Amino acid sequence: MAATPAGPAVKRLVVLVSGSGTNLQALLDEIERTGAERYGARIVAVGADRDGIEGLARAERAGLPTFVCKVKDHESREAWDAALAEAVAAYEPDLVVSAGFMKIVGKEFLARFGGRFVNTHPALLPSFPGAHGVRDALAYGAKVTGCTVHFVDDGVDTGPIIAQGVVEVRDEDDESALHERIKEVERRLLVEVVGRIARNGYRIEGRKVVIQ
């Protein structure tokens, strides 16, 4: 059983991004709006797997430290994973948040941050895991889909579920339209969940996440 205690201390977040960083911005906006003490956490650094992305620019505009860890700069995927773990660990985070980070982490990263690494997925897991969750839900004819906030384990979108949000599938939806509505719910849910687990603490009992 993994557990993180509640307490008055403001939790330290490292956020990982690969693209535009809209989920990162949602976190930044909420922390600025409510204050780190009331929200329960503050972002101490933002990392990425590539240069020149808006997610890093958002972090820099907010005055946050950034780092980039590219797979191609390392001799193996395992070496990259170890380097990413070192880069994140340098900021001593209580939680790591994948805000659209499009790389699968490995054993070294999970050895350090397993049970503390939060991810989002644009479907209601365990249905439609993988890189095409929105497309797959449409192709299957699902009437509802949504988003899942979960802890990352060594599978693909198989970690313990923290929270889910439901989005109705409309007859006229294409992948883009449906994904945009899912993203709106996803941003709100991620902000809510990260704040709750930071403020209240949590424990993981098998597949069940209990926010204390």
Rank of each mutant, 00 (worst) to 15 (best):
M1K: 09
A3W: 14
T4V: 12
P5G: 08
A6N: 07
A6K: 11
A6V: 09
G7K: 11
A9H: 13
V10I: 14
K11W: 00
V14E: 04
V15H: 01
V15W: 00
L16S: 12
T22K: 15
L24Q: 08
L28A: 04
L28K: 02
I31K: 00
T34W: 00
T34D: 01
E37G: 15
R38F: 02
R42Q: 09
I43M: 00
V44T: 13
A45L: 11
A45K: 00
G47A: 09
A48N: 08
R50E: 12
G55Q: 09
L56K: 12
R58T: 01
F67W: 04
C69E: 01
V71E: 12
V71F: 10
V71R: 07
D73P: 05
E75A: 14
R77H: 09
R77G: 10
A82F: 11
A83W: 10
A87Y: 03
Y91F: 08
P93D: 10
V96I: 12
V96S: 06
S98Q: 11
A99P: 13
F101N: 03
F101T: 00
K103H: 00
A111N: 10
R112M: 00
R116H: 11
R116G: 10
V118N: 03
N119D: 06
A123T: 10
L124S: 06
L124P: 08
S127N: 07
A137S: 15
A137C: 08
A137G: 13
A142W: 06
V144Y: 11
V144H: 05
C147W: 03
F151R: 11
V152E: 13
I161N: 02
A163I: 01
G165F: 05
V167D: 12
R170D: 00
E172S: 15
E175M: 10
L178Y: 03
L178S: 09
L178Q: 09
R181W: 02
I182V: 15
I182P: 12
K183R: 09
K183W: 04
E186D: 12
R187F: 04
R187S: 07
R187A: 10
L190S: 13
G195N: 04
G195A: 00
I197D: 07
N200K: 13
G201Q: 07
G201V: 02
E205D: 09
G206N: 06
R207E: 00
R207G: 04
V210H: 10
